[in-house]
């Protein structure tokens, strides 16, 4: 394998890892702040991709789909928190698992009613459809590079909000010691609602930006849910930095696993997870005894 091909695979791995990071960071935020395990996270990723397909087909603009899709997911997140998730705080994990499982069944059926179960594809936005010629017979699609840039911007925004703003301070304090933060007079009612909505919106955003490079199909949420879980287990619950490390590790393992060990590639990420569990059961950046 020559250097250019290796470079292309490396770009693929990074791009894949970045999308994973976007989705998993939403999941780890909800774990960290709300203490709720949300199995329906993948369902919102799937819903985002279907919304992207539907809105882009209706309006003809991918960018409208990005804005409207994220907006819809955010509002749905606010509503869900208010109606269902709020009642789960302090309940055991079994209740959380099963309520979000019920949500998956409902969301899947709503998707069936609204969009059917067909497999769709979405065109990349105008201007990002070309490819960069690397060598005579190798090119790299511009849109994949755009995804990298897009995710980097999103990650920068998340980083800025968490480390530099008041709401970020509350989020960090809440993840560190919720009781103490509450004692200091911070009400988590509003914070919880917005964090959950942002988490859902991040999942949908992941689904939307992935739509042009993958197919849009009903089962896409399930596989993303498992991958995000592995990312969070690798990185440590509630840690955005951990999610970034975990996501890149999975991106690299999966992409290069398919290149070098195609016969066992589907198991490799789980082997990685098992190794991390043996080495650090609380994740690479997980500090706490849980």
């Amino acid at each position: 394998m020559d250097l250019v091909t290796l470079g292309v695979q490396l770009l693929n791995a990074i791009q894949y890892g970045m999308v994973l990071f976007l989705v998993a960071s939403g999941l780890t935020l909800v774990f960290g702040i709300l203490g709720v395990i949300n199995l329906a996270h993948g369902a919102f990723y799937m819903l985002g991709a279907y919304l992207a397909y539907w809105i882009a087909a209706y309006t003809g603009s991918f960018w409208v789909a990005v804005g409207a899709g994220v907006g819809i997911a955010f509002v749905v997140g606010l509503l869900l928190e208010n109606v269902f998730i709020r009642r789960l705080y302090g309940r055991d994990h079994l209740a959380q698992v099963l309520l979000s499982f019920g949500l998956i069944l409902v969301i899947d059926e709503i998707r069936q009613l609204l969009f059917g179960k067909d497999v769709h594809s979405v065109l990349p936005p105008e201007g990002l459809r070309g490819a960069i010629q690397l060598t005579d017979n190798l090119s790299y699609p511009v849109y994949r590079l755009a995804i990298c840039a897009f995710c980097l911007v999103a990650a920068a925004i998340i980083y800025f909000v968490i480390t530099r703003t008041r709401i970020g301070m509350i989020v960090r304090a809440g993840a560190e010691n919720r009781e103490m933060t509450r004692t200091l007079g911070i009400s988590f009612d509003t914070v919880n609602r917005y964090v959950f909505a942002v988490g859902i919106a991040l999942a949908a955003l992941g689904g939307i930006i992935v739509a042009p490079i993958s197919t849009v199909y009903p089962g896409m949420g399930d596989s993303m849910l498992i991958l995000s879980f592995v990312v969070v287990v690798l990185g440590g619950i509630g840690s955005i930095g951990g999610a970034a490390i975990g996501a890149l590790l999975i991106g690299l393992t999966d992409t290069f696993g398919k290149v070098f060990f195609p016969s066992v590639s589907s198991v490799l990420i789980y082997v990685l997870m098992a190794a991390v569990l043996l080495w650090r059961p609380n994740g690479i950046l997980g500090r706490r005894e849980v």
């Binding site: 994990h93 592995v230 619950i237 997870m273 043996l278």
Partner: peptide, 10 residues
């Protein structure tokens, strides 16, 4: 080797 939410995810 893990607890709680980790155990569910693993």
């Amino acid at each position: 080797r893990t607890r709680g939410i980790y155990f569910i995810m693993v």
